[in-house]
Design a protein around this nucleic acid. Structure first.
Lengths: 208, 208
DNA sequence: CAATCAATCTTGACGCTGTCAAAATATAAG
DNA sequence: CTTATATTTTGACAGCGTCAAGATTGATTG
């Protein structure tokens, strides 16, 4: 959308944000693989090495992009918590649906945020971590409250249960967006069925 | 290990297998990222474009490598099924432990077998699919039997439950091997705890 | 055995990538 | 105005996947 103002001046002035914006849409279109610094620079109207004065690395750009994604994810979850008009069981269901919905709506962004390249040892930025960690804390708080309300297994250790539920959602998402499940025909219908099955497992475990 | 016989003859004779072997160890050392056709050719002692007479693409080599992994995985699961001396509940636990154990022991191979690059639309080889599909069928059969024996929720649709359990194991594996969980200190201890929590959830759901 | 053919391997080249070094230019500070 | 600092540029390097054309070998057939 709002990529480059096409300034003709030597100094761009808004290079940092312009690069991030352009990177965002380029990521959405072709994934991490198609995201190259050179194409990015060209699209913003600047030479190939200009970005290196705002991002030390390609990795640093990816981290900044992912950090931005975590910031928005946190806001989305927070807004979901505010809409607590429904009963806690329905809240948990909505939490699951929303997780898969957001992830499958922006598969390339999800792939970046939770992918190897930026989390591999030595790659993860302190700035990235500071944005990602609160999101997990947020999820942990939600699950703790659901445990206290008897929706989820109250005997389980909250941290472990959070990790397991997250694993289930993450795994389901990855299997879908990585193409291991065929996304040809009525895929969303099957994904919905998988979510419901997962929900049922966690809910019944609470009544053991 | 047994990489190249260093034949000086023009025709290598065993190029296909030599490439696969070299690729296997190169993958284990540096991951997909570090696996380049050129380095591979050099290591086997052949020119850069020689591999193209045995693999149409780099993608085709990756598919062959992954297919080999699936073949071995199938054999491993089959052997696990034969060791059915223990009770079915313990069998299910061992199945979970083994999944994570094998995946974390060969993280780079797992990343290849269940990663985007080879499953992305248009990348997956028919040969790859024919090796991967039976593995899922195998897991589905196991889960069906555990359902019939009352270990897992017998009311759930077998296909959906298989997908959910697989999602949990896959997600847990990915979070670990992708570096999202810090693998610094006593990691295996925490992973064990997560597995136990997941197992408990699925077992209690059967007694709902 | 000799000639032909197909399989295999090599050299050369192209465009793409990330990134460093050094030079040019614009802005800010003294 | 001069000096320093931040920003951008051009040039260059090594690496990558891969195509095209030529060289070499092993197998096939007359």
């Amino acid at each position: 959308m709002s990529n480059s103002p096409e300034k003709t001046s030597y100094h761009h002035g808004e290079l940092y944000n312009s690069l991030l914006n352009a990177a965002h849409s380029m990521l959405a279109e072709g994934g991490i693989e198609a995201l190259s610094l050179r194409k990015l620079a060209e699209q913003v109207g600047v030479s190939r090495t200009a970005p290196y004065h705002h991002f030390k690395d390609k990795n640093e750009l990816l981290c900044a992009l992912a950090a931005d994604g975590f910031k928005r994810k946190q806001a989305a979850i927070a807004q979901l918590s505010l809409h607590s008009t429904s009963n806690p069981t329905q809240q948990f269901k909505d939490f699951v649906y929303d997780y898969i919905k957001h992830a499958t709506a922006n598969p390339e962004l999800y792939d970046l945020m939770f992918g190897r390249p930026i989390w591999k040892t030595g790659s993860s930025n302190p700035q990235l971590q500071s944005h990602a960690y609160p999101v997990f804390q947020q999820q942990l708080a939600l699950i703790k409250s659901w445990q206290q309300q008897g929706v989820l297994d109250s005997e389980a250790d909250t941290l472990r249960l959070s990790q397991v539920i997250w694993s289930t959602l993450h795994g389901l998402t990855r299997l879908v967006i990585d193409g291991i499940y065929d996304s040809s025909d009525s895929n969303s219908h099957q994904v919905k069925a998988m979510c419901d099955c997962a929900i049922k497992q966690f809910l019944s475990a609470a009544k053991g």
